[in-house]
Amino acid sequence: MNDINQLNRISTQVRRDIVRMVHACQSGHPGGSLGCADFLVALYFSQLNHKAPHFDMNGHDEDLFFLSNGHISPVLYSVLARRGYFPVEELKTFRKIHSRLQGHPATMEHLPGIRIASGSLGQGLSVAIGAARAKKLNGDKHLVYVLMGDGEQQEGQVWEAALHAGAKGIDNLIAVIDYNGQQIDGPVEKVMSLGDLKAKYEAFGWSVITVDGNDMASLLEILELAKSYAFKGAPQLLLMKTEMGQGVDFMMGTHKWHGSAPNDEQLAVALAQLEETLGDY
């Protein structure tokens, strides 16, 4: 699907799902989830060549997506459910006992769409590289996508993996950094500046493109561009500028909503800003 209006309408519903999920269990990470809603909708409803709603762990002959910054699980769960991987109704179990929707994504409960546990940061790029190399061995010409946080770039393992992908030319891999500039303790710039991230990845042998992650048209265009650059010898990075809390005015422009839930009143304010486009669960 490439209808921008329709994709935006899905994003709006996903944002409603996110704030409702986080509100219902009074925990979770709404800020980054809201910021990445457009990207994940673009990926799962337009770009990903996958077999939804069918899911199998090995993912042969389809594109794969890994979420490395697992704390933004609400957005992934909503998108997977809305895409048909599991019943939308199940979103109401998020972070509750005996749920398949664990606080951070996990495979133990066999939730369709999840192929690796994540949450302890810095591991997803390595996993994606492994999956990408397995695809090459299998002669499978599909792509592997992975989303990381910008704060997550402070983890050493990310750079081990970045070195590997560049040195070995893992060109069926598209990594994305949610470049929202915020982490738990405050602005990334202040906590531990990443410097020139683009130059750093380029120095590691990556091809880097920047994109506005909250503009559906730009996302589609850049994701298509990235696909056209695949299989040309270099791994790719999308430096995706987003706004933490995007779509809910009082959650934007601050790290305060990185990991806290709205109360009843705040929920009502948030939902008033997000049209119910696909029907609430």
Binding site: L125, S126, V127, I129, G130, A131, H164
Partner: peptide
Amino acid sequence: AHMIGMAAGMTIGGY
């Protein structure tokens, strides 16, 4: 650390 993550990723794909 990267090796362990990469190995986990390679199981996805049947290795």
